[in-house]
């Protein structure tokens, strides 16, 4: 054994920023995450050149999967041009040479914060969701050791109780985004702060979804064709945001998740939250030939 065996020629930066040992650890943990869907797997979560809480978990997964032929799309709150999406996209391209795209249909890897695109993802695409808080039980049990025990015991009674209390008090489940969902009938997970609108897109999907929380050092996954069922009571069905009937004031698209834009006169107008879908809808409306993918929602409704 010599020093030369232990090291390699000096380079200012490894391919994809992360060094080989960091990538191997992530690979090992991704395997476990896929094999036990919805179960939070602890990982070392190295520092990356971005602040914790800004997508460092998703970034580490993307940096491990990336290669020079992989086309990458990055979105934040549905928008490709959101400042942090732009920053992450620029970083991914800079450290990997991978081409970037805004079009969901063109992407091999999609890193997203808080949205799943409206066009159905294919089986050759991977969705990486950034996760601020991986623990669905946090609101009923802030202590992580106890929460882990509860997952181990499949002890979700307190979670159900919280939902029940909301129905009693407010007539409905008040959970906005991050709707707790049962994965493969065993582990309750947070789907990350995606709106309720997006949760059914994970159920029996064709694509693989990897969810990664860098600050909290947990990684979990939803493989293709895996049951993802929002926690609901038999007599109080799951309800997505009431956006099915709204129309985008810019593109004219109807039946998708919208951003509400408050107006000076006290009313609101709406625009499609999936920004690139909106762009394509405008271009199609203006007569361009645009490839529009099949969408999960049809006429504002998710087919059962």
């Amino acid at each position: 054994m010599s020093l030369a065996n232990l090291t390699k020629p000096w380079a200012p930066m490894s391919y994809g920023f992360l060094d080989a040992s960091a990538k191997r650890e992530l690979r090992r943990k991704m395997i476990k995450a896929v094999c036990v869907p919805g179960c939070q797997m602890p990982y070392a979560s190295r520092e990356v050149p971005m602040a914790r809480g800004w997508g460092t978990g998703g970034l580490q997964v993307s940096l491990t999967l990336i290669n020079p032929a992989m086309r990458v799309k990055v979105i934040d709150q549905g928008a490709d041009d959101s400042v942090n999406a732009a920053s992450i996209r620029r970083f991914l391209a800079r450290v990997s040479g991978a081409p970037t795209t805004l079009d969901t249909l063109d992407a091999d890897l999609i890193q997203s914060r808080h949205r799943i695109p409206e066009e159905i993802l294919r089986e050759d695409q991977v969705l990486v969701l950034q996760v601020p808080n991986p623990e669905p039980l946090r609101s009923v049990q802030p202590n992580m050791s106890i929460a882990r025990q509860m997952h181990g015991d499949a002890d979700y009674g307190r979670m159900w109780l919280q939902l029940y209390e909301q129905i009693v008090r407010s007539g409905r489940v008040m959970q906005g985004a991050s709707y707790p969902s049962m994965v493969n009938g065993r582990h309750v997970m947070t789907p990350s702060p995606i709106p309720r609108w997006d949760v059914p897109k994970l159920h029996m999907a064709r694509h693989l979804t990897i969810l990664s929380a860098g600050r909290e050092k947990r990684i979990f996954a939803v493989p293709p064709y895996t049951r993802v069922e929002p926690l609901v009571f038999d007599d109080v069905p799951y309800r997505v945001e009431d956006h099915g009937g709204l129309t985008c004031y810019r593109s004219g698209a109807t039946g998708f998740f919208m951003n509400e834009i408050p107006q000076g006169d006290g009313t609101s107008t709406y625009e499609v939250s999936d920004s690139e879908y909106g762009v394509k809808a405008i271009r199609a409306r203006d007569g361009e030939v645009v490839a529009m993918g099949e969408t999960w929602y049809k006429d504002g409704k998710m087919p059962q």
């Binding site: 914790r52 709150q77 549905g78 985004a177 995606i194 709106p195 600050r215």
Partner: peptide
């Protein structure tokens, strides 16, 4: 510190979801 400053990022999707409920 990272989590603290991340609250500067837009949160309008989650906010919209809560507003709806």
């Amino acid at each position: 510190s990272g989590f603290c400053i991340h609250f500067k990022l837009p949160h309008y999707v989650t906010f919209q979801s809560s507003l709806d409920a």
